[in-house]
Amino acid sequence: MRFNPCKALALLLLAGLLGGCATPTPYDYSAFKQSNPASILVLPPVNRSPDIKASYSLLSHVTLPLAEAGYYVLPVALVDETFKQNGLMNADEMHMVPPAKLHEIFGADAALYIEVSEYGSSYKLVTSEVAVTANAKLVDLRNGQLLWEGSARASSAENQNNSGGGLVGMLITAAVNQIINTLSDRGHEIAGITSQRLLTAGTFNGILPGPRAPQAMRDQLTAQ
């Protein structure tokens, strides 16, 4: 059979299109539904980014989406202070406490472990963006079982349009944005968006609604 390069290229393009349209696998919520947690302990996030503000910036945003999802969230400032009063001064140490011990101390049904892998501004010659990326795991404190995990990212570049002004205009815009981002700490604002994307209930493969959620939101839980 004679090799046809045009036909081969067409097949490769078709395969790429089919692969790009693959449907994501739905999350297995069986353990989450069986656990049915009502209260959540949020541990201070572990910071893997260079910005020292990342952990507590994100922590300040997590209570709202979890409360709106129908969970009782232990006061994050009180939790943080309790750890520090017991000699655990950073998030890495706090995350190493066994689930059973956390349940004994705080009495929550589940704990949310968060890791910040990206936080702050970056300058890339013709673009400047502020981005926050976070990963989370929800663990049952009564038996140590993983109930859910997810990740989210938000960036100031999502709504930027650099089409006008040519290369010089793009360079100037990027430089100005970098200065503004640094002076105003837009990372805190972007962290709020990341937190909402990560912890809002009812999204695909997101956290499930809690027992205090509105009926319409709980109906989504039944349907999944």
Rank of each mutant, 00 (worst) to 15 (best):
H188W: 08
L138G: 02
C21W: 10
L138T: 02
Q85A: 02
P75F: 09
G202I: 02
D109W: 03
L58E: 02
V73C: 02
G164H: 07
P211K: 15
A152T: 09
P209E: 06
K7Y: 04
T25G: 01
G169V: 03
I114C: 01
E149I: 01
A174C: 06
A77W: 08
E129G: 15
S122H: 15
E129K: 15
V97F: 02
M89A: 08
T203Q: 12
T194M: 05
A223G: 00
Q196E: 15
L125M: 12
E129L: 14
A131Q: 15
N36G: 06
L13F: 11
L17W: 14
A38D: 09
Q160E: 15
V176W: 02
Q215N: 09
V73Q: 05
Y113V: 01
E93C: 02
E68T: 06
P99Y: 00
V73D: 04
E81Q: 12
A201F: 00
G202L: 00
A38L: 03
V176P: 07
N161Q: 13
Y72C: 04
I105E: 00
Y123F: 15
N135D: 10
L66Y: 05
R2H: 09
A77C: 03
S195G: 15
C6I: 12
L138W: 00
P37R: 04
I40G: 14
I193V: 11
A111D: 00
S184W: 03
T173P: 00
A111S: 11
S195T: 14
N143D: 05
V130R: 01
N205Q: 07
T82M: 06
V132E: 02
H103D: 04
G144T: 05
G144Q: 07
A8N: 05
